[in-house]
């Protein structure tokens, strides 16, 4: 077993690891994907602005904005936060709770509509 601190330990060792310093080996996925996602995010934001000026305010427009926000969130978490390269267990632990919150968000906006009408 690798001992703690003062001795030289292999921080990447998968078998005889020291949990206090262990980190997995990482490798770069290059920069082309990052720039591609930047342009996608930029275009999605421009689409947001276009919808804002072209379409009249309505619940349908709100849902379009939220859907575009979710698409942006997928690209930011997936590529920028490296989630698409993580293990499925980690990804689902983080993404699933947030996925269900989207329904709560839309539902409470709809629900709020009725609060003033009693």
């Amino acid at each position: 077993m690798a001992s703690h601190s003062n001795q030289k330990v292999d921080i990447h060792d998968e078998v005889n690891y020291d949990p206090t310093v262990w980190v997995p080996k990482v490798h770069s996925h290059g920069t082309s994907d990052i720039w591609k996602k930047f342009w996608i995010l930029l275009v999605l934001t421009i689409i947001d602005v276009v919808f804002y000026f072209v379409m009249e305010p309505s619940m349908a427009r709100n849902i379009i904005f939220i859907a575009l926000g979710v698409v942006k969130a997928i690209y930011i978490t997936g590529t920028f936060m490296h989630m698409k390269h993580e293990k499925l267990g980690l990804a689902s632990m983080i993404v699933l709770p947030m996925f269900f919150i989207i329904f709560f968000l839309v539902w409470m906006m709809y629900e709020g509509n009725f609060w003033g009408s009693f």
Partner: peptide, 28 residues
């Protein structure tokens, strides 16, 4: 860090859910 971010996301979600509900309890 991921666990913290998830809990922070819950905090922001609660703020935005509250915002959405209060926003639509007022007429546009």
């Amino acid at each position: 860090m991921w666990v913290f971010l998830l809990s922070d996301a819950f905090t922001f979600s609660s703020l935005l859910i509250g915002y959405g509900a209060i926003r639509y309890s007022n007429p546009s």
